[in-house]
Design a protein around this nucleic acid. Structure first.
Lengths: 194, 194
DNA sequence: AACTCGACCGAATGATCGGTCGGTTTTTAT
DNA sequence: ATAAAAACCGACCGATCATTCGGTCGAGTT
């Protein structure tokens, strides 16, 4: 692995665990066996380093969901949404550091002043919501989903699923045992009458 | 207002907007017209200052929900849960800084090493979940709620409601328009069949 | 052999960090 | 009125921060 990639990987882990301001360049230097000068040779400053990380995360997530969508075969819209939820839960586990980072505040803080950062975040969330929305829309047509307003329902669903993932990472409760409850809740939400 | 309270109030606001590590004592001193020495006269260090803030938040939230529960009159469990959701949404708006703080990472990070911090967070979440759970349990008895496993359903519901609040604060989307969708989703979740 | 170039290094820099301390003012109790 | 206590101040401290910079080294190119 090139030193540049080693820096990116270590920084992803440190930023996700200790935050942006909580991670010093000296600490990152120690974690990568790269001199601080080397880090600044590859990235023009700390913020630029983070933007590169975020761009990588965006690309990976978008690629993963692209791959997921191509291998898809669901009998109806409802099943499609359910598969998406399962895949999202799988991905948050497989890309733990990356999603931990997305669950912190500083990316959204930086997004207020950094255009690239803002666009990365928007791409990620649009990708996720679009996939949820598509399943709901198909379900509305084939009759497997009765919920109205596909986009809004997608957002509420996403808030619920992501909320469970958060509960899990905060370790206040063992939310891992909640996945089956989550799935039945998704189904109720999509098929239940108002 | 006493200087001590002014420090607490300003620190709550700064910590919630810029994070714990992102807020310096010098900045806090400027924001309160209190010398840095004065801040350390009232709080033995930065962490102690935050723990005091968190203890205040805990007390306020617990008191607010206590007051809410005493003024309650719902016809059944379902309505009770719905009222709780509405009240929670109201509270997150009325206590914006405090909930923003609870939505950041550093309280949970500090909770790993600080007992008081951990207990404050546990009290807050237990209080919220207990109230949701109670409504669900009553609803199960009077027939207005069909969902099983009151505690788990309470957690999924809380994850969903709090997830929407987060979407709102991150300002990636205008989730404020989602409140009506959220309410119908809550109802589906509680009354829908699996 | 001479030159170029980019990866890499680590000591040095000025700014800023959390925290201390000796002293002054204000409040409180007697 | 006075003494003790509590609140308050800001200059100061050593540590650490992000960033800079002069320089080494080895792999191409001519």
């Amino acid at each position: 692995m090139s030193k540049r990639n080693a820096i990116l990987a270590a920084a992803t882990r440190l930023f996700s665990r200790k935050g942006f301001e909580g991670t010093s360049m000296a600490e990152l230097s120690r974690a990568t066996d790269a001199a601080t000068g080397t880090i600044f040779h590859h990235f023009k400053n700390k913020e630029d380093l983070f933007v590169n990380i975020l761009a990588d995360i965006k690309e990976t997530i978008l690629a993963e969901f692209d791959r997921y969508q191509k291998n898809g075969d669901s009998r109806n819209g409802l099943e499609m949404v359910e598969r998406t939820v399962v895949f999202y839960l799988h991905l948050t586990g497989a890309m733990e550091d990356q999603f931990l980072l997305l669950h912190r505040h500083f990316p959204y803080q930086m997004a207020e002043t950094n255009t690239v950062c803002r666009e990365c975040l928007a791409s990620i969330y649009n990708c996720l919501l679009d996939i949820f929305e598509e399943g709901i829309r198909i379900g509305q047509q084939d009759g497997s989903v009765t919920a109205s307003s596909a986009r809004n329902t997608a957002m509420v669903m996403f808030a619920m699923v992501d909320g469970i993932v958060r509960l899990n990472t905060y370790r206040i409760y063992d939310a891992g045992a909640l996945y089956s409850n989550l799935m039945t809740s998704c189904r109720s939400l999509l098929t239940g009458r108002s």
